[in-house]
Nucleic acid binder design. Structure first.
Lengths: 387, 387
DNA sequence: TTCATTTAGTTCACGTTGTAGACTAAATAG
DNA sequence: CTATTTAGTCTACAACGTGAACTAAATGAA
C-alpha cells in the first residue's frame, strides 16, 4: 500500500536516498552524489548540509587529488551521533553490542552462563544489567541511542517468543521484561543473524543463513532484504521433512531435519554431551564423531535441496554450531546438493561458513536499528532545528 | 535501491496512489479519497481530473443518497481505454484473453490441440494468429493495448523458457517468436496463475498456488505480492524431497514430489493414460484411482509440510490438474499437514481448490499488464496533453 | 609565473506541486 | 423556506527541486 507523497515526504525520501548512497558506495563527493541520485548539485548540497548538521554524515578530507579540476570533498557516514543496541539471549551466554551509524562496534560485552531451564525473569534481569552497561558507555561516548533489538532463538511474532527449544521457554514477551530508555524489539535469532551476515559479513545480497542450535532456524535474504513470510515465521528449516518415516520430532511430525541434524541428535550420534567434546573428537579423527557429522550433513543436504528448489537459492551460509562444524559438514552437505540439484540447475548453490560466527545475531540486531535510521533519517534532523 | 523524488515523480506517485485506492476500495468519492490518501481535497480533485481525462477513471452517478449533505460523485476504474493481453501455452490448448483496466474480460479464445512434442515455431505461429484475433477485437472496442504476457509451464529467466517438461522444450525464447505491436513478456505459468488467483480469485493476500501439470510448480504470494526468489526461479515444488530414497527423478535426484504426484506418476498409479480417464475412474469409485490420488495427496502433504515450515504459509491453493482432482486429494493432503504441523502451529494452513481453474494463467498474465498500468499511470496521461 | 581549463560547490530566481481555507454547490432536516 | 451538512472548486501561498550563473580550487601549458 504505497503512501501519498507531499513536500515533506519528498524531502524525507531524498534524505534517505543520499544517506543510503553514501552508506552503500563509500566516500562520495556531492558531485558524485548528484550523478548517482539524478538530483541536481544544489539539491544534493542542501541535503548533505542538513545531514552533516544532524551528525549523520561527516566531511572527510579533499578527495581524489591529482586529477584536473577542483577536488571534491568526500562525505562519509558519521559515527558521532547515533548508537544502536543489539542484545542476544543464547543457551550459553548473554551478549550486547553497541554500533554507531558506520557499523563500527563501540561497545561489546558477553556473559557466559548456562541459560538452559532458567526462568525468563532471571535471565532478563541479568541482560538488563548488561544492557545498562552498554547504554552508559554509549552515553559516555556522546551517542544518542536510537533503538534496541533483542535476538532470541525461536519463532517470534507480535513481540512474543512462541517457543525456545534450547531454553525451554514458551510464549514469553521477552522484550517487555526489559526496562530501557528506548523500546526493545524482539526478533528471531536466525533472521537477525542473516541480517548481520548481509550487512557486516559476506556481502552477498541473496542467501539463506542456517542457524544450527537445538532447533534449526533459517533466515532468507533476497535482494538485500529479509524475507520473513506472511507473519514473520518463515525459516523453520528444522521441520522440513528429510524422511517421512524418520524419528519422531517434538513438532508432532517425524523425520524432520531437526531429528537428524539438531544439536541433540548430533551429540547423541557422536556419543558426546557437548559441542566442545564433539569438536575435540573430530579434531583427533574420532570415527564416531566423523560419522555423526557426515550423517547430519547428508540430512542437511536433503532439507536444503528442498529449500533451494522452493526458494531459488544460490548461496547458503552455515551458522550457529554448524559454523565450527563446517569443515566436517561441508563435504556431505555439498555432495547431496550437487547430486540432487545437478540435473536442473546450472550450478548448485555455494556453501560457506558464517564469517561472523557467534557475533552475527547481535550485529544483525544492532544493525537493524542502524538501518532503520538510514532508511528514515528525517526524524533525526530535529537537532539541527534546536541549534 | 530507492529512487530520488522530484516534482514529476511526486505527481506520478500520487496518481498511482489515487488509482490504486480506487482499484482496491471500489467506488469512492473525491472526499473519501482525500480521507484515505491523506492528500487534500483540492489535490485529489486535480489528480482525479487528470485520470478521468486519460480514460483511466470514470465518474458514475451520485453516491450514497439519503445522507445529510451534498452527495459525492463516485469514481471507479474505467474500462474504456486500456486493454491487456494474456497468452498461455498449455499441453492441451492455447489460450488468449483480453482484459480492460477493471479486470473485465473483453475477449477470450482457446484452441484445443495437443502441443506435446510440437516444435516451438509451429505452436507459436498458431498462438500468433490467436493473439492477432484478440488484438483486432480490442481495437474494435476502442482500447489501447498496453502490453502482453505469455504464460508457459516451466522455469523462466531473462526471457528464456529453460525447460518445459510437458512440451519437451528446452531453452526457448518463446516470447521472441511472437510479432505483436507491443513487447511480449514471458513468465512462468505457476507464478502467473498465482497472480490470477490473487487479483481475480479468492481474495487472499498470502498463499501458495500449486500448479499440478507434468511438473509441479508453485507461485508464492506474500502480502499481495509475488515472491519469485533471487532470480525468479523459486517455486519448484516438484523437486522438494518427499523421501530421499524414492524413485529416480528427471532432475537427477530421487524421491522428489514429482515422482509421486506429477501427472505421469499419478496416471501410472491410476493405470490410466489421461486425466479424463482418471477422473472417470474416480467418479465411479474405482479403488485403483482412489488409491493413486490418496498416495499422491500424502506425498503432496509431505512436500507442503516442508514448504509451510520454510515459508510460513497459511493458505494453499491447488491448481492445474489438482483442481479437478481436489475432492479426492484434499483429505490426504490436509491429513498429512494436520498431523505434521499440529505440534508447533496454531492451525494448519487452509487448503482450497483454485477458483479460476484453467483460466488462472491467462487472467494472471493479462492482469500483470493491468497492474503495471495501475502501478504507474503517469505515461498514460499523454493522451490528455494531445487533446 | 600566469592564465586557460576543468571540476566542485553555492546562490538565487523560477517552476511544479501540494496546502489551507474561503467559496460555491447540492443535498437533508426542521 | 432556511439552517445545516457534506462535496467539490478556486486561489493565494509555501515547500522543494531545478537550472543557470557564479565562485572556488585544482591542473597544465605557455
Amino acid at each position: 500500500m504505497t503512501q501519498a507523497v507531499r513536500h515533506d515526504s519528498m524531502r524525507a525520501r531524498n534524505l534517505e536516498v543520499v544517506l543510503g548512497e553514501v552508506s552503500r558506495n563509500g566516500p562520495l563527493t556531492r558531485a558524485a552524489l548528484a550523478e548517482l541520485t539524478g538530483l541536481t548539485k544544489s539539491t544534493v548540497s542542501k541535503l548533505v548540509g542538513d545531514l552533516v548538521d544532524a551528525g549523520l554524515l561527516a566531511e572527510t578530507g579533499p578527495a581524489r587529488a591529482g586529477e584536473r579540476g577542483r577536488p571534491g570533498v568526500d562525505v562519509v557516514l558519521s559515527g558521532a551521533r547515533i548508537a544502536s543496541l543489539g542484545l542476544e539471549i543464547n543457551v550459553d551466554y548473554l551478549a550486547v553490542r553497541v554500533l554507531d551509524l558506520t557499523g563500527a562496534v563501540r561497545f561489546a560485552a558477553r556473559r557466559d552462563r548456562d541459560n538452559r531451564g532458567s526462568r525468563p525473569k532471571k535471565v532478563l534481569a541479568e541482560l538488563q544489567a548488561l544492557a545498562e552497561e552498554a547504554i552508559t558507555e554509549g552515553r559516555r561516548l556522546g551517542l544518542d541511542l536510537a533503538g534496541a533489538v533483542l535476538a532470541v532463538s525461536g519463532p517470534v511474532g507480535d513481540g512474543v517468543l512462541f517457543s525456545a527449544p534450547n531454553l525451554g521457554w514458551q510464549d514469553v514477551r521477552a522484550a517487555d521484561l526489559l526496562r530501557l530508555p528506548v523500546p526493545v524489539e524482539l526478533d528471531n535469532e536466525a533472521n537477525l543473524a542473516a541480517l548481520g551476515e548481509l550487512w557486516y559479513g559476506g556481502g552477498e545480497r541473496d542467501f539463506l543463513y542456517v542457524s544450527g542450535e537445538v532447533g534449526i532456524g533459517a533466515g532468507l535474504v533476497v535482494n538485500g532484504e529479509l524475507f520473513a513470510g506472511p507473519r514473520g515465521l518463515a525459516g523453520e528449516l528444522g521441520h522440513v521433512v528429510v524422511a517421512p518415516d524418520g524419528p519422531a520430532c517434538r513438532c508432532g511430525g517425524s523425520g524432520c531435519l531437526e531429528t537428524y541434524a539438531g544439536q541433540e541428535a548430533l551429540l547423541a550420534a557422536g556419543r558426546t554431551s557437548t559441542v566442545a567434546d564433539l569438536l575435540a573428537g573430530l579434531d583427533r579423527g574420532d570415527q564416531v564423531a566423523l560419522d555423526a557429522c557426515a550423517a547430519a550433513g547428508r540430512a542437511l543436504g536433503v532439507a536444503l535441496t528442498s529449500a533451494v528448489n522452493l526458494l531459488d537459492l544460490d548461496h547458503i551460509v552455515l551458522g550457529g554450531v554448524f559454523t565450527p562444524l563446517y569443515p566436517w559438514l561441508a563435504e556431505s552437505v555439498a555432495g547431496v546438493l550437487a547430486a540432487r540439484l545437478g540435473g536442473l540447475r546450472a550450478a548448485p548453490p555455494v556453501l560457506t561458513a558464517s564469517r561472523l560466527g557467534g557475533d552475527a545475531a547481535t550485529l544483525g540486531a544492532a544493525g537493524r536499528v542502524v538501518h532503520r535510521v538510514l532508511a528514515d533519517p528525517a526524524p533525526f534532523l530535529v537537532r539541527a532545528q534546536e541549534a
